[in-house]
Structures are given as C-alpha cells and as structure tokens.
Design a binder for these strands. Sequence first.
DNA 1: GTCTATACTTCGATAGAC
DNA 2: GTCTATCGAAGTATAGAC
Lengths: 202, 202
Amino acid sequence: MVNRRIGKEDSETRQHLLEAAEQLMREEGYAAVTSRKLASFAGLKPQLVHYYFRTMDELFEALFKRVADKHLSALKEVSAQENPLVGMFELSCDSANSVLHLEFLALANHRKNIHDQVTAFGRELNRTESAIILDVLRKEGIETPGVAPEDLSTIIETMARGMAFAENLNARPLGNARNILTGCLAKFSVTLRALSEFSDAD
Amino acid sequence: MVNRRIGKEDSETRQHLLEAAEQLMREEGYAAVTSRKLASFAGLKPQLVHYYFRTMDELFEALFKRVADKHLSALKEVSAQENPLVGMFELSCDSANSVLHLEFLALANHRKNIHDQVTAFGRELNRTESAIILDVLRKEGIETPGVAPEDLSTIIETMARGMAFAENLNARPLGNARNILTGCLAKFSVTLRALSEFSDAD
DNA sequence: GTCTATACTTCGATAGAC
DNA sequence: GTCTATCGAAGTATAGAC
C-alpha cells in the first residue's frame, strides 16, 4: 500500500523515538538503529517506528536534521562569547557529537538523501562560521584578511573534527596537540599573519 | 560446531575476497559487506566467505590489516621523497583511502576488536611519522623543536584526514584551504617557529 | 576447494483489529 | 495511537557431499 497512516511530527512518542535513536546510534552505530532494536530500546513496539517514519531512511533524515539544528543553535550561542573562535573549536571538538557526526558521514557515503543533507549542513556551517570569523577580525581591526574567512572556517572545522575523531578513538587527550591549536585560535591575529604568508606563496 | 575447516591465508580466492570486500566497503559502506553481497560481488558463493573467514568480524580484521599495511609501506616510500612532509600530508588526504578510514573509524566505535586494531595502527602511524618529522627537522638544522614531533604528527594527520573527509563529502576541493596547509608544510621550519610561540604560551 | 542444502535469526514493511 | 499478525527478503553460520 502506498498511503499508509503516518503519525504527527509534534508527537511526543516521535520525539522519544528520535531521542532513543540518537543515543542508540551514538553507542552502537547506525547499523544498530533498526526498527526492532530501536523500539525495544525505547520500550515500544517495532511497528510504531514505521507508524512515525515511512521508512528507516526517513528516520535518519529526521534525526540528522535534529542534530544539525542543535549544533547550529549552539554555534549561535558561542558567537556571543568572549572568544568565539575558541568556543567554535571546542564545540566541533565535542566528542559526543563527533561520534554522531562520524556515523552520519559514513551513512552519507552510501545514502544519497543523507549525503545531500550533510553537505547542505556543511555549507550552512561554513557560512555561519565565516560570519563569526569576519566579526572577530573586524573587532581586532583587520578589515581584509589575507586568507578568505571561508577557508579559515574550513581549516578550523577540519582540525576540530579530526581532533574529535582521534580523541574519541584513543579515549584520551592527544598530547599537547590540542592545546597548541587552541593557542593558535586564542591569538588569532598572529596566526592569521603567519597563514597569510603561505597563502600568497605556493 | 567449533572446529570448522578454514582456508589457508595465502589462498588466491581469499585474496580475491579481500579485494572485493575493500571495493564494496569503499563504494557502499561497511554495512554492505555481508557474506551474500560480498560473494555475489566477487562471483562466488556466500558459503565460501565463511570458509575463509570464521566470522564476518574476522574478515573485517583481515581487511583492516591489509589496508593499514599498505598505508604504512606507502609512507615509507614517501619518506625518501624530496619533501616528505607534503607527501605525508597528500598520502593521508587521499580520498580513496579516506573513505575506507572513515568506515573503519565508524566500525571501531562499536566493535572492540576493530577498535583495538585501529588504535594500534594509529600509534604506529604516529611513531613512523614522528621519525620522519624529526629527520626533516634535523636536515634543516633544527635539533630540538619547540613542539614535540608526536604532536606535529597528530596535527598534520588530523588536518589531512579532516580535509579528506570534507573533500570526499563535497566531491570538490575545499577552496584554498588545502593549498594553505600544503604551503605550511613546504616551509615547515617557518611554520614550526610560529607554532612554538603558542606552545609555550599559557 | 567449492558446492548444495539448510537452520535459525533479524530485518523492513504492511494490513487490519482495537 | 497502539496493538497483533504476518510477509518476504536478507543476514550469519554449519554440515556434509563432491
């Protein structure tokens, strides 16, 4: 049948299912998020999963949207802090989130709808971070940085995620590496001058 | 039964299966590597998979070992190049490998044996890279760098993988970001001086 | 070394009663 | 909105013939 009944988006049970799915995915990976395991984890019947989500793909989509929105709104809070760049870095380093990110990246490798969603999120993140970076630079009196804010965002984001993945894997801090990078961000105008040198060269 | 017959490690069919598994994992993710799909992909019967590998876990272990060994031997070749650091970076940026790495990282999140294998590989990689870095620094006349070679390896590796994941996701180069980082590595002694400043701070 | 046959489990998804 | 019942497909793994 094509027109099956589907539960409302604002349903409490639906929220509960998404919550459980997030936890399950974090702890056991996306492959463990099956209708049966999820239901049992949430204390519900498997059929309810299909009542709220037409397919499992639809569930993953909804879950990613949830996680992505959470990250973007946290980013907005960070931008009001004293040192937004360090906050930005710490946010993307967060190991709980990084595990989820990793799972979604892996999912994106072979599910087109997730792939599109993840790239769209990446673009939005880059835009938002670029704006924050520009703002920080202006406050330091730098109007035209030698490196594009978009590239700076990419570099920071790249390092943060890499750190998070590695830390998460080793279950320990990565020597002094993370402190060094945080230091670079705390004295960003100095770092930027250094980076600019390499940007012009090649 | 506990003592099932298992095929020899040097069997051609076994190699063929691992080859196919690698490709399948790259293209469709680890969840697609099932005995049935793998066998059909390799033009064999599913039961042969279980003849060569006691369990699917054993197959993933063997596959990771294969990939890790390949990477380490490629790294050794790179260390003989003119600019080993750039080569190191490019190697870890390689998008074909990065997809596999990502899949294994995801697998490691919830399979203990893979987790242990991946961390062990990470440690060995760090050791090998540190040695290369030390060598490069010595040739530039720097005997005691302000930042530990292990941390430098971590930073470079982190950036490279992050780049690879992001590029792979977007299916396009990441603006100028990658060039900037390559530039930093090409003029490593300059970069190192800049990094040292932040290392001593706070 | 590769095949057939097969046991058992878990999966996604739907229909229909309540 | 949640339940029971149920399908067919796909998963891992083993035994035993050739």
